[in-house]
């Protein structure tokens, strides 16, 4: 009896300690994000305080208002949204049929798989110089389509590998059954396979959106005045950043962070798969 209570004690303290440990890890991990988003809502006296104010008592939306009025942030956000959506739509339109073809007919075999991995891993800096030269000849610099196209290089392989994983989750007998019932292959695909693969497509869309939204190198190289993204604005705001502008710079960075933060929470279940290009199931 006595011994049993002792064991329970040990277990309870173990569990509490374990929860504390996780809390500490989470706090350290999230602190930088808390700090930047927090700064965007702080009054100047709080973000220019020494010692720093960790838990401000008052909040303000002023920095967001000045970010819009003085720095004209809205077009940058719009550019980010347009480019990310455009690239994502193109990626999905090209990847879904390709992934279907690979998973059903084994097109290309191991060689194609190897090529896709290669294309996925390619450092952007390796292709950005020739793409810059080619796009300047084609008058594609500083255009939405020109900004969206380079992202296809790295994200189509990603999307295809993810989708192959999702396709392989669907038992082939389902489609065969539909075809025995008199559906053509395209009908079977549309009525049976597509609805089942739809959640997978949504996951791919969200991931690609995040990848394109976050990019700096390609946007920096191919944009001029008209197609600059919010990420470039944040980077520009950091040149010779003085204390007085902390709040506004933080507000602009928050625009870049918050949508991605939400998407990450939505995609909980699929993070492992996405981060390893569908290679490791989470």
């Amino acid at each position: 009896m006595n011994r049993r209570i002792q064991i329970n004690h040990k277990k309870i303290f173990g569990t509490i300690g374990w929860y504390l440990l996780i809390a500490v890890i989470l706090i350290i991990t999230l602190f930088p994000i808390y700090w930047v988003i927090g700064t965007s809502f702080k009054y100047q006296r709080d973000f220019m305080a020494s010692p720093p104010v960790y838990f401000p008592k008052e909040f303000t939306l002023d920095h967001y208002i000045t970010a819009f009025k003085m720095w004209n942030t809205w077009p940058y956000i719009l550019n980010s949204v347009i480019i990310s959506l455009l690239a994502t739509v193109l990626i999905v339109l090209l990847s879904v049929p390709a992934a279907y073809s690979i998973s059903k007919y084994r097109v290309g075999g191991a060689k194609l798989q190897a090529w896709l991995i290669f294309q996925r891993m390619l450092p952007p800096v390796v292709v950005i110089i020739p793409i810059y030269l080619i796009f300047s000849k084609l008058n594609l610099l500083d255009t939405y389509i020109g900004m969206a196209l380079p992202y296809l290089i790295f994200n189509i392989p990603f999307a295809i590998m993810m989708l192959i994983g999702f396709f392989s989750d669907i038992p082939p007998s389902l489609q065969e059954a539909a075809m025995i019932d008199g559906c053509t292959e395209i009908q079977a695909m549309r009525k049976v396979v597509l609805p089942l693969i739809l959640p997978g497509i949504v996951v791919v869309i969200l991931f690609c959106f995040v990848f394109v939204w976050n990019d700096m190198l390609i946007a920096l190289s191919l944009s001029r005045q008209n197609t600059q993204t919010i990420i470039l604005l944040v980077a520009a705001s950091m040149q010779q950043l003085t204390g007085t502008y902390f709040g506004m710079a933080a507000a602009m960075a928050s625009f870049a962070i918050i949508p991605i933060f939400i998407i990450t929470l939505v995609m909980q279940k699929h993070l492992v798969r996405g981060m390893t290009m569908g290679g490791v199931k989470g």
């Binding site: 930088p32 994000i33 700090w35 020494s50 944040v234 950091m238 204390g243 929470l265």
Partner: peptide, 26 residues
Amino acid sequence: ALMVTPFMIAPGAAALAWRLLFDSRY
């Protein structure tokens, strides 16, 4: 998911977070 957020958000925006954290005065 919360733990992975540093990996998901834009490095360009995270750069600003660290610029504020590392600031030698504030």
